[in-house]
Design a protein around this nucleic acid. Structure first.
Lengths: 138, 138
DNA sequence: CGGAATCCTGACAGATACTG
DNA sequence: CAGTATCTGTCAGGATTCCG
């Protein structure tokens, strides 16, 4: 009886109810889906590494992103409180982005998944090769 | 100089190189994208909670999944070594799925993100309301 | 410079039908 | 029961153009 929801295995002794509010669950799932998004993760990393950056700079540092997705992703991250967006009313425009405390904490939370993936990727690759071999045999 | 990659902030003192192999990075990113997939996460949870299950049972317990996506997702998870698939050669067919050790460890790895999301969802919702209010004002 | 608006396509999800 | 095959629609996301 263990689940990926912390309510069922939380090492902290906190009294999280076993029956998680389905509304909360749905919300949390949505949040995870968003933060696990390709561009969100990349931008998160770029901002972690470089601190405050301007729009175009993020675009250059985020390999392969289109202007549309950059705008869209940054908006979403701003909306969720992960990045702060400061507009300097000058000509030409200057907009600076940086991670909020919430953004940094998100980054830290994902660190565990990164460590897991880095530690186990060899097992995954092995599993894939084994799977290939199995299916080639029939 | 901090990133979401553990190489830059790993609390464990292990000697992970600061310059992560870009190939590995791409792989890890792909893995995360997959495991963060909606159905993958749901099935992961269902199997954690119920142990070994048959194809149809997983379908019933995974609200809203189509039979196509169930097959597809289970195949992928089997390919990556997260679930084992045992076919009993009887009539009618009987196929049993269960998590492997790798699957359980994946589940555990994501627990941290769940805890983060559960702990911080109020902040995110507040940020969203503030964002709404801000944009309503102009 | 930092976007917004528009158009377009291809990948992927859902529904349906068939099968060992 | 546990799939496969096929068709179709939707929609995320790229390219392009324009604007304060």
């Amino acid at each position: 009886m263990q689940g990926i929801k912390p309510s069922m295995r939380s090492p902290l002794g906190r009294e999280i109810p076993d029956q998680v509010d389905p509304v909360l669950e749905e919300l949390v799932r949505g949040i995870i889906a968003q933060v696990a998004d390709k561009w969100t993760m990349l931008i998160l990393e770029v901002l972690e590494e470089h601190g405050t950056l301007r729009f175009t700079q993020i675009g250059k540092l985020t390999e392969g992103i289109s202007q549309k997705m950059l705008t869209q992703t940054l908006r979403q991250m701003e909306r969720d409180g992960f990045v702060s967006r400061i507009v300097h009313p000058v000509i030409p425009p200057k907009v600076e982005y940086s991670l909020t405390e919430l953004g940094h904490s998100l980054s830290a939370a994902f660190c565990g998944v990164w460590e897991w993936a880095a530690a186990r990727h060899a097992d995954i690759e092995a599993a894939r090769r084994a799977f290939e071999a199995r299916n080639r045999a029939d």
